[in-house]
Design a protein around this nucleic acid. Structure first.
Length: 589
DNA sequence: ATTGAGAGCGCG
DNA sequence: AAAGCGCGCTCTCAAT
């Protein structure tokens, strides 16, 4: 059963029951926003699916009131998928003209709407629609109203009228579960020890400088750089043109300032410069300013953007949540009496490719009798396809990314011979992209069409009297789009596996129940293990110490479940490396 | 003052 | 070793 939440008038909330069997919706009930959390908590029984326009518009307020829901349907996210899915092309939803549900901007997980509503501060602002769209069009803000009940009907019809209702149903459920997870991670926050982070910074950079000044260690390196280049004190190492000029004058012979280019050169400036760049990065991207901005009360509150990447991966906004450098992960420390369970999926993308392509031999290469799986690249070596693990790895990466040079291209023919189904699948995706066609993930997320600029460049190449450069530009653009679609099917399906994994972990953790003593985590997680981080193929669970080992087992079971959800009985395994640690840095990365 | 680009590096 | 996929962030510098 679906329970649809909608904005009512004067801060009221409308609640409508929509049966699963296509029967007409019940009458809309109206209740004051202040009573919403209580009402949701009362009706939540683990089987209802809560439907709302945007998870971040509703769920943070519920969490603040300690209410967690088991299942949701995020209409904004679902609409975006259904609108372009190749599985749903013939449906009314896909054929309808652009409407208020198209191009809705995600709501940031900001201050809690319910709290604002209680405080009486601009309650209508709680329901403001997002502003921008990719093409600059303004979606319905004001004029057109979002009508969640009829939109749900349209979406359910689109799913059942699609060519793959089962897969789309799973995709929408997984995407929405992901939205719940993202909101919960924001709510709980990643445990972050400011004192440890500060110690890391002080050790590397020296004490925190006064505003506008460079840290001691950086200042010292700048002196050495100027000295090695015989440059004046006006040389600004943060200005690339400035620095390159000085290096040219000193005869260093650098064509760029990229780390791996500099590493090939032999000159006294190289060592201090490389060290400067590395420390400068730490200082600017994850230094004291970052700490001030993003860590409050011992928690880093990430702002994930679910479905923010075309492939279906999550993006993030602010804080660089998906780029936490390894050297600051020491600051991620479990609360006293709690542990971190860190798990990452081993060789996720090639395994997903094996499932996608139904490549029995590649699946076998990553499989072990105990069901836990074995190193896929080692298995490829054992199959005799290539000589070394490194060859297997760069070969597979090249196949999935479209690499055309070096060792990766060299071993590709041998992989193609040993695993024809897998390699053929990515090659076909690449050729489809080169023709300007759309490709689709296993569960039904379709790639965007190439776009106007693409067609223009292609058109120019065939025009009368167009030069060789126009033709080569078109050719290189064609290949680039082929690499994109080649990767899209793999990366996108891996993202679907990860969503299913997350959803399963989330449900299993909740089912583990409560411990006796509350920890420092906010309700509803004070006595429960909960997700605190997600990074494409990796999760961190914050768990009461006594539950850490059983949590590790559940996370493994969830990976197996995700594999089954996507690929049924096809025998591809998804092994994890799991560590129970106090600090994130102690999990082997 | 604000905006957009390019360069570079962090993560998977 | 530094090609090939997807991102976000911070910096400088030129354009507005």
């Amino acid at each position: 059963m679906h329970l649809v939440l909608a904005r009512g008038t004067a801060g009221a909330v409308g609640l409508t029951t929509v049966p699963d069997d296509g029967a007409p919706p019940g009458p809309a009930e109206s209740l004051p926003a202040a009573r919403l959390a209580g009402e949701v908590g009362r009706r939540e029984d683990g089987s209802v699916r809560w439907v709302w326009d945007d998870t971040n518009r509703w769920y943070p307020a519920l969490l603040t009131d300690g209410v967690r829901v088991e299942r949701a349907h995020d209409l904004r996210l679902a609409h975006a998928i259904l609108r372009s899915s190749a599985f749903a092309v013939g449906t009314d939803l896909a054929r309808a003209p652009r409407g208020p549900w198209d191009g809705l901007a995600p709501t940031p997980p900001g201050p809690s709407p319910a709290l604002l509503a209680h405080a009486g501060a601009r309650p209508e602002a709680l329901f403001d629609l997002g502003e921008m769209t990719a093409d600059g069009e303004r979606p319905a803000s004001g004029g057109e109203e979002l009508e969640p009940v009829s939109e749900l009907r349209a979406q359910l019809d689109a799913v059942s009228g699609s060519t793959e209702p089962g897969r789309l149903r799973l995709l929408l459920a997984a995407e929405s579960a992901g939205a719940l997870v993202a909101a919960e991670i924001h709510h709980a926050g990643l445990p972050w020890r400011t004192d440890v982070h500060d110690a890391i910074l002080t050790e590397a950079l020296g004490p925190r400088p006064r505003p506008g000044a460079r840290p001691e260690r950086l200042e010292e390196l700048v002196r050495r750089i100027r000295e090695a280049l015989d440059a004046p004190p006006t040389l600004n190492p943060d200005s690339h043109p400035d620095l390159l000029k000085a290096m040219e004058y000193a005869g260093v012979g650098a064509r760029s300032l990229r780390k791996w280019e500099l590493e090939k050169l032999d000159h006294p400036v190289i060592a201090p410069l490389l060290e400067y760049k590395s420390l400068y990065r730490l200082y600017t991207a994850n230094g004291w300013a970052w700490l001030d901005t993003w860590v409050r009360d011992g928690r880093f509150r990430m702002e994930y953007v679910v479905g923010g990447v075309v492939t279906g991966r999550w993006a993030s906004s602010g804080g660089g949540a998906l780029q936490l450098p390894k050297n600051v992960r020491r600051a991620v420390v479990a609360d006293p009496g709690w542990r971190l369970v860190v798990a990452d999926a081993a060789q996720l993308e090639p395994r997903v490719l094996a499932g996608l392509a139904r490549d029995e031999r590649m699946a076998a290469a990553g499989r072990s009798a105990d069901g836990q799986g074995t190193d896929l690249y080692a298995g490829i070596v054992a199959s005799g396809a290539v000589e070394t693990r490194e060859h297997a790895k760069v070969g597979m990466l090249g196949a999935m990314y479209g690499g055309t040079t070096g060792a990766s291209a060299q071993v590709l023919p041998r992989l193609a011979k040993a695993f024809p189904a897998a390699i053929d699948l990515v090659e076909r995706a690449a050729r489809a992209g080169e023709r300007g066609e759309v490709v689709t993930t296993w569960l039904g997320r379709s790639s965007p069409p190439p776009g106007e600029a693409w067609a223009q460049v292609q058109g120019l190449a065939f025009e009368e009297g167009s030069g060789a450069d126009a033709a080569s530009r078109a050719r290189s653009q064609t290949r680039a789009w082929g690499r994109f679609t080649r990767n899209f099917v793999v990366q996108g399906t891996a993202a679907e596996w990860a969503l299913c994994w997350l959803a399963s972990i989330r449900r299993r953790l909740w089912e583990l129940g409560e411990t006796a003593d509350p920890g420092q985590a906010p309700e509803p997680f004070a006595r429960r293990p909960h997700l605190v981080y997600f990074l494409h193929d990796e999760v961190v669970v914050h768990a009461p110490a006594a539950l850490a080992d059983v949590v590790a087992d559940e996370v493994r079971a969830a990976a197996t479940e995700a594999g089954r959800l996507l690929f049924g009985s096809f025998p591809v395994q998804f092994p994890l490396s799991v560590a129970v640690v106090d600090s994130y840095a102690d999990a082997k990365g």
